[in-house]
Amino acid sequence: MLRLPNFHYHVPATVAEAVALKAEHGPHASYVAGGTDLYPNMKRRQQEPHHVIQISQLRELHEVRDEGGHVRVGAGLTLTAVHQHERIARDYHALAEAAESVATPLLRNMGTLGGNLCLDTRCNYYDQSYEWRKGINFCMKKDGDICWVAKSSPKCLAVSSTDTAPVAVALGAAIEVTSAKGETRRIPAGDFFRNDGIDYMKKEHDELVTSIHLPAPNGWRSSYMKLRRRGSFDFPVLGVAVFVKFANAKGAAAKDAPVEEARVVLGAVFSEPTIVHGAADALVGRPLTKESIEDAAEAAFKIAKPMDNTDYLLSYRKEMVMPFTKRALLKVM
């Protein structure tokens, strides 16, 4: 049986206590909510925290609140709760779709929104047991100093494999974090991540993701498409989240209305969810048509640079950027 290493276990009563514990133990501590990301990694000795701080019991993290039009969703909601939430399913369909596409029903009962946003980057040179990694003399993300995906790469190329983060970025959501100093700040999801497989989040180590702020639903539409081999279990090896806001959009009239604002975000092709600026350029100012969608998909295809460290051939993942972007956009047409 594959087992966890020893650790000290903490059950703080409040967010303040949780962040204080994290600050006290520094990099040797990890927050854990659902455990579906951290515990497998610990069993494979990819992460070896001496202190594990349980946060799923913190009531503050479970609230869904309307804050003057926009919605604040607690980071502690399970992914099941997210996709089953009436308000989220209605107004933030792409987020519900993304949450429902994560892993399996059992894992979604455990894993949380915050956990999925902060999901460790993945790579099939890294997501292996200690013994396996010894066979390649380890990699720079853990215990070694080379990136086996591209030996000359100065940085780790592990892949951002979260389904919800590309949606958060596309929606222009903000991620709220609380620090040990008691400060709370909202970081735009688009600024939260970094294209570095090791240091992939811009939050400080003691900062805890407490909620995600979703913009008011005022006529924009969103969707999410995910490439994976199986309809369940598998992480995305390409994700496309799109957000389109039409000028004066109201129901059927949107059909011919020009696009006022758009974001196309690629997941699982870099170490962070990546905004395709060229796609927005192709979409904004024109009605959403087959032609504009084609141009946007082309722009997404151009920037995508998947590497050989997930399921599927990298050339195929690159090729799929076109049809997946198109389909994501067709869904909001």
């Binding site: 099939n124 997501d127 396996w132 390649i136 086996w148 081999r229 199986r230 369940s232």
Partner: peptide, 18 residues
């Protein structure tokens, strides 16, 4: 890469789901 098994796990060895 030293003849490592590429995917020795239930996640990456793809067994069909429902």
């Amino acid at each position: 890469r030293n003849m490592v098994h590429k995917i020795p796990s239930m996640l990456e060895y793809k067994s069909p789901t429902t």
